[in-house]
Design a protein around this nucleic acid. Structure first.
Lengths: 367, 367
DNA sequence: ATGAAAGCGCTAACAT
DNA sequence: ATGTTAGCGCTTTCAT
C-alpha cells in the first residue's frame, strides 16, 4: 500500500503557455487578473490552467519576492505580559519557518486598552503614503492583532480592510468586521471543561463559586455560561454562585469573602471555586490565609508561574490553558497562505486547543 | 516597542564571493566541503561567511532542488488503523506545507509486527542501486518510521543510517541506534496524569484496576509505573491491582473478571479502572454488561469513535490522548530542517502533548 | 584550483 | 493586446 505525493512533475506557467499557445507573460496576466488580455485567450488559458490543476511553485514565488518581501504587522497588548510573551514566541517561530519565503514581520506591543494609541497604530497601517516623511516604514500587507471589540476599533479595522489589507484577530475576536478569521479559544467550552472537572471531583452536593471579571462583557460571561451548562450536565447536586472580581486583586479577594460570608449565613458549604476571569494570585492567597487548602477544589485558567506553584502545592487542582504559542503561530501561517497562495482560511474560527493541566505536568517523572 | 525581524537584507553567496574576492563557485565549494580549493582561500571564505552570519536562502535552495527533490519515506503500521490514519494526516499536512520545497514524500503502510516484511522494506531503502531494474524508485534521502524495538530491526536501521540516510522514529522509539530523534509521548507521565484524574475523582479509599498489555514489554509497563507513582502522590488511600490483557478482547474481559472476582473475595471495592494498554471496547462492554456504569470511574487512552461514544454516555470519564497528528507532522518538519538546513533536531525526544479529553469535548456547546 | 554560466519557476518591466 | 527578458539565490556542469 504505497502512496506517493506528486508522482510526476507539477505543471508550470511555461507548460500552460505552450499548451494554450501564448507566452508566459500572458498566462501570468490572466492568472493575476492584471487585464490587457483578449477575453477569449484569457478563457482558454484559464481552462488549461484548471485542466492541469496548476498551482504556482511556492519556492519560485518566494524567491522572486525575497528582495521586496511583504510586511506582516502584529499588534499585541502590553498587558498580560506573561501570556502575550508566549504568543510572541509562537509568532516568532512561524516567522522563522517563513523566513526567506517572501515575508517579513514586525511585532509591536502597545497598550491596547488605550483606544487612542491603538486606533492610531491601526490607522497608520492603512494610510501609509509612500512619499511622506517615511522613516523607512514600508507599507503593510497584512495585519494580525488582539484588540477590544468596540465601535471605534471596529471602524479602524474596517478602514484597514477597505485599504486591501487582510486582518486576522487572535485571542479575543472583533465581530462584525471583515476580518479573515479569528484564532482563539472556545470560551464556553472552556467553562464546560471546568465544570466537568469540578463536578467529577466533587460528585456530592455543595456550593461552587464561579469568579468572573465583569458580567457586562460578553467575553467574561461566556466561560460562566459554559460552566453553568456543565454543572447541569455533570454536577446536578451543585449550586453555582457567580461573583464579579472586576479584574483587580482586591475585587477578587472581596468577592470571595462575600461568597463565603453568604454561604455561612445560608449554612451552605463551599466545596469548589472556578476562577473564570480574575486574579488567580488573589484566590491562592485567600485560600492559604483562610486555611482552606485541600478542603476546596479549585480550577483556574492560564498557566502562569504562580499557578504552576499552586498546582504543585495542591492549592489548585487543575488549570485550563489556551496554548498561547498556537495563537501566535497559526495566524501568521494563515496570513502567509492567504497572501501568497491566495487561499483564504478554511475556517472562520480556529479554536486553540483547550489544555487541561494538573499537578502531573509540574512534577518530575523519574526519581 | 517595535521589533522587526531582518531589518536589512540577508547576505548572499554573491556577497561573500565579492568580499572574499573569489567566485561564487568557490564559495559554494567551500561551504559544501567539496574539496579542490586552496586551504588559505577556503579559510578566508569561511571567515567572511561567519562574519556575515551567512545562512542560505531557503527559497532559492528549494527552487534549485524542485526538479530533483529529495525523497522522504515514511513507514507506518497497518494495525491500529484509526490511530495511524491520524498520524498519516499530520504527515500529509507537513508534506503539503513543504510541497515545492525540494522534498517529496512517500508513505507506506505495512504489517510492522511481521519482522520479515518490515526489515525487507527498511533494507530496500539503504541498498537501492541506481542502475538496477529501477521501476522509477528513486533513492531515499530520509526515513521516518514506527517499528518494534527488536535486535533485527535495530540492525536494519543501523544499516540505513550507515548508508547516510537519517532516521526519525515516531510513537514508539528504537533505542541504541543512531536515529536522529524520537517523536512520541512520555508514557510515564501519561500514567501519572491518569492517576491524578482517578485519585482526584475518587479521593476516598478503594481499589483501582490498572489494565496493561504485557508486562514483559517496557513500553507497556511505563504507563503503569507512572500510574503507581501518581497514586502514591495523590491517591494514598487507593490500592492498585495491575492486570495483563495480552492485547486481546478476551484477555481484557477475563482480566477484568479476575480482578472483580478477587476483589469480592477480599471484600475490597473496585472504584476505578485505568486502561493503560488494552482493548477499550472490551472494557466498555464489560462495564455495561455488569451494570457498573456510574459506580466505577474509568480513564482510558486514545481517542477512538467508541471511546468518544463512551465518554458521551458517561461510561468513561476521561481519555488521555497523544495527538497522533503531531506525531506525523513533527518528524517530517524536523527531517526537512535536517536535510536542507543542516540543523539536527534540538532535542533527542520531542514529546507529543498529553491531551486530557472528557465528555466536554464531545458535547455541543450551543443550545 | 578557480571562474563562468545555465537553469530551477515566477514576476514585472520593457518592447513590440 | 501580446511577447521577450532580466533577475531573485543557489547548485552544478563545463571550461579554463
Amino acid at each position: 500500500m504505497k502512496n506517493r505525493t506528486r508522482a510526476h512533475r507539477k505543471p508550470t506557467i511555461q507548460e500552460i503557455a505552450r499548451i494554450a499557445e501564448v507566452s508566459r507573460g500572458t498566462v501570468d496576466r490572466v492568472l493575476h487578473e492584471r487585464g490587457d488580455v483578449n477575453p477569449q485567450v484569457a478563457e482558454r488559458v484559464r481552462q488549461v490552467a484548471s485542466d492541469l490543476a496548476y498551482a504556482p511553485n511556492r519556492a519560485a514565488k518566494a524567491l522572486k519576492y525575497s528582495s521586496k518581501p511583504k510586511l506582516v504587522s502584529c499588534i499585541l497588548p502590553i498587558s498580560n505580559r506573561e501570556y502575550f510573551d508566549q504568543v510572541a514566541i509562537g509568532f516568532a517561530r512561524a516567522a522563522r519557518e517563513l523566513s526567506d519565503m517572501g515575508i517579513s514581520v514586525e511585532t509591536e506591543r502597545l497598550d491596547c486598552d488605550d483606544e487612542g494609541t491603538l486606533i492610531e497604530a491601526i490607522r497608520r497601517r492603512c494610510s501609509m503614503e509612500e512619499g511622506l516623511a517615511g522613516g523607512g516604514d514600508a507599507t503593510v500587507a497584512g495585519l494580525i492583532l488582539t484588540a477590544p471589540d468596540t465601535e471605534p476599533v471596529r471602524d479602524a479595522i474596517d478602514c484597514v480592510i477597505a485599504a486591501g489589507v487582510p486582518v486576522i484577530t487572535l485571542n479575543s475576536d472583533i465581530t462584525e468586521c471583515g476580518r479573515l478569521c479569528f484564532v482563539g479559544q472556545d470560551l464556553k467550552r472552556s467553562g464546560l471543561v471546568a465544570a466537568e472537572l469540578l463536578s467529577k471531583m466533587l460528585r456530592g452536593a455543595g456550593r461552587v463559586v464561579a469568579v468572573t471579571g465583569n458580567l457586562v462583557y460578553q467575553a467574561h460571561t461566556d466561560r460562566v455560561v459554559g460552566f453553568q451548562r456543565g454543572v447541569e450536565l455533570w454536577g446536578r447536586l451543585l449550586d453555582v454562585d457567580v461573583r464579579e472580581s472586576f479584574g483587580t486583586y482586591e475585587g477578587t479577594i472581596s468577592c470571595l469573602e462575600a461568597a463565603f460570608r453568604q454561604a455561612e449565613e445560608e449554612h451552605a458549604e463551599i466545596v469548589g471555586i472556578y476562577m473564570a476571569t480574575g486574579i488567580n494570585e488573589a484566590c491562592i492567597d485567600f485560600l492559604v490565609e483562610r486555611n482552606l487548602v485541600g478542603t476546596v477544589r479549585v480550577v483556574t485558567n492560564d498557566n502562569t508561574r504562580s499557578i504552576r506553584r499552586a498546582l504543585e502545592a495542591g492549592i489548585v487542582d487543575y488549570t485550563i490553558c489556551q496554548d498561547p504559542e498556537h495563537q501566535g503561530y497559526t495566524p501568521l501561517k494563515l496570513m502567509y497562505e492567504y497572501l501568497f497562495h491566495n487561499t483564504a482560511p478554511l475556517l472562520e474560527w480556529y479554536q486553540s486547543p483547550i489544555k487541561i493541566v494538573g499537578a502531573s505536568d509540574v512534577v518530575d517523572t523519574d526519581d
